[in-house]
């Protein structure tokens, strides 16, 4: 009788890949990352720290009061938007998670989805119509007798914050909803049955479970916000630009690629720092789970 050869165990199907197979599978992604992320990043650094003054280009950037103020405006406005978006987003996502009313669910879902489906220019133009001197808001307030003369709403930081908040809301609600779905709502009932008030149940039971999601949303929203370009240009005007506008101005109006590259690197540094802080606060594993 011929001997039946048993296949060695390690040649059978395995749920995990060996190192070379895994490497081969991710090779296309690595190639794309090197070409579209790695190479441009190296070029960006070369431009930022190249001509005319090498590392001194960074000093040149901070020598300009306009550049300093713009960086500050970018970081501070983004912070305000992030706080508003995360607070409102947390409430909306929680309502979406817990409501039993189909109507409420539908209304919230539409409010969240609509900004995603509309083009950026359309959204910004809608705010222009609302905020212009004789726009909807000013006319309504004048008609109600709240103001005598139209207020300057357009080309203000308020307009920028409002426009960005509206656009960023989905980016907070969606990840937070994904986290809320994993929270056992019976826990609230359980804690209430043990004497906790609803607020205490939310604070001591729900909040710790939702915290990674909240922080992850905060990081996502902030990092996206600091790169905003169109909204500050169109709703904020020429006197309160974001750093992205400065970069465009350096490249397309002043043709100063070194300063544009320095500003880009600084934005990357800010984004990296924010991600790092979020990572440290929440912990690697929880952050990964929160980000899905």
């Amino acid at each position: 009788m011929p001997r039946i050869r048993r296949r060695p165990r390690n040649k059978g199907w395995q749920s995990t890949f060996s190192g070379p197979v895994g490497l081969a599978l991710i090779a296309p992604f690595l190639a794309v990352a090197v070409v579209f992320i790695g190479y441009p990043f190296v070029e960006l650094l070369r431009t930022a720290f190249g001509e005319p003054n090498g590392l001194g280009n960074v000093g040149d950037f901070f020598d300009s009061p306009a550049a300093r103020k713009t960086l500050w405006t970018t970081c501070f406005t983004s912070l305000i938007v992030t706080v508003i978006v995360v607070v409102v987003g947390a409430v909306l996502a929680w309502s979406l998670r817990t409501t039993r009313s189909r109507l409420v669910r539908m209304v919230i879902a539409m409010a969240v989805f609509m900004p995603l489906w509309m083009g950026a220019v359309m959204k910004i133009y809608a705010f222009t119509v609302l905020f212009e001197r004789f726009g909807v808001v000013n006319r309504t307030l004048t008609w109600l007798g709240v103001i005598d003369e139209p207020m300057q709403l357009l080309r203000t930081q308020f307009a920028v914050v409002a426009g960005m908040t509206y656009q960023m809301l989905p980016y907070a609600v969606l990840p937070m909803y994904a986290v809320y779905v994993t929270i056992d709502l019976n826990l609230i009932q359980a804690s209430e049955s043990m004497g906790a008030s609803r607020i205490r149940a939310l604070r001591d039971v729900v909040a710790p479970l939702a915290l990674p999601g909240l922080l992850a949303s905060t990081v996502i929203v902030y990092v996206i916000c600091i790169g905003y370009y169109l909204t500050p240009v169109l709703l904020g005007g020429a006197t309160a630009p974001f750093t992205a506008s400065l970069i465009a101005d350096d490249i397309f109006n002043l043709f100063d690629p070194a300063q544009a590259a320095v500003a880009s690197v600084l934005l990357l540094v800010v984004a990296g720092l924010v991600i790092l802080i979020g990572w440290r606060l929440v912990g690697k594993e929880r952050m990964r789970r929160a980000l899905g």
Binding site: S64, P65, A66, K69, T70, A238, T239, A240, P241, L246, D249
Partner: peptide, 8 residues
Amino acid sequence: RLREVLVG
């Protein structure tokens, strides 16, 4: 210089 005036 104009940028400094507008933004500064």
